[in-house]
Design a protein around this nucleic acid. Structure first.
Lengths: 210, 210
DNA sequence: GTCTATAGTCTGATAGAC
DNA sequence: GTCTATCAGACTATAGAC
């Protein structure tokens, strides 16, 4: 389907007004879907809801995305692209473990700002659609390799205990970025957003023991 | 097949054969629902599937449970009851932190044996049904209080860092018991079940740092 | 608007507990 | 032999993808 990516920069008005509108609408659709996906989950999010929330006709939705699956994949792909960019932006000078910590903090802040967690929280349908998306799988592999490298370096540095298996650490790291503790704490209102991020990253890297 | 509740001992045949059959069937329904819930999630699990898998007519399903909601709640309630019993079975002599660790290990092993995670993984519908269930909410509060007490004691003992807020620790503990890392690792096959439990609990209590 | 999926209901037939 | 629970499955109603 049509590009979901960089609606960003606008060089000397190369695009028609129509095309700009089209892209802006696509961005709005992705934003709304992201929000609904985060709040209600895939199965309980209807295409009618999305159209209504964006303020467009349902038919227009299908001009942008061929199916509900494709729309969900586009949202998850956008998130993964942003994550990959955040990974690019990490200062190389930082020790590997500090880079991992910074990445986790970035992801948690994204979620606090209303983003979906990386994993299709629960939906078998979305998971399946993602694994069928070439773009998604390729980028996921690339990102995983880079995180794997950081993990490896952190272990070599002695900053992560080497009794942990690499497979475990990678999955653990993904799971931390999707941890529902964040949602519970946000809903309970007991901690500030800063405290949520601090306690969650601290528990991940230092554990609960003093 | 493991009996759900106590189909076990048969004192002087107090129950009619019919009643016994009825209870056995109810256990089978709960087992099947538990499994489908774990594998496909609430929205993608249909009542027809359940009936077919149990090997009974759909109408009979409704003799046992008034609705799909009620069935899901029954499964989650049974799990919570078992968890409460596991909590009862913890040796009082053990330090609080060791009891928490043992409970987490118990929950993870239950999941490895095919159980649903405690949180209605993703479904807003199930979560809502649970909060409407008096039995569930009451037991959840009771269990949470007991876990809260253990956490408090562990902090007093100096076994859990006291800079962590109690709200955080309780939610964190629940989230660990539902952690998707377990599913990833089981699917990948890279670690044995024992190793999965060990690495996950170790990461929770000692963290990643050596 | 069309079409499929599925929750939930109802019925007549039948097996098997009592 | 009676009676009742269960069966198969048709059926209704509704939601939601497209």
């Amino acid at each position: 389907m049509h590009s979901a990516q960089e609606s960003a920069s606008r060089p000397p008005a190369r695009k028609s007004f129509r095309a700009t509108q089209f892209e802006a609408r696509e961005g709005a659709i992705l934003d709304v879907t992201n929000q609904l996906l985060a709040v209600r989950g895939y199965e309980l999010m209807s295409m009618d809801d999305i159209a209504a929330e964006v303020g467009i006709a349902k038919g227009s939705l299908y001009k942008h995305f061929a199916s509900k699956d494709a729309l969900a994949v586009a949202v998850m792909l956008r998130l993964l692209r942003r994550t990959s960019e955040a990974l690019d932006a990490l200062p190389d000078a930082l020790p590997a473990v500090a880079q991992l910590r910074a990445l986790l903090e970035w992801v948690l802040r994204e979620r606090l700002a209303g983003g979906v967690p990386h994993l299709p929280s629960t939906s078998a349908a979305v998971r399946e659609a993602l694994t069928r998306s070439r773009d998604y799988v390729d980028l996921l592999i690339a990102v995983s390799e880079r995180i794997g490298t950081l993990i490896h370096r952190a272990q070599a540095d002695g900053a992560i205990d080497s009794h942990y298996r690499e497979e475990f650490l990678l999955y653990h790291f993904y799971a931390r970025s999707c941890d529902p503790t964040l949602d519970f704490l946000r809903e309970s209102g007991a901690l500030s957003e800063e405290d949520i991020v601090e306690q969650m990253t601290s528990a991940t890297f230092e554990g609960l023991a003093p």
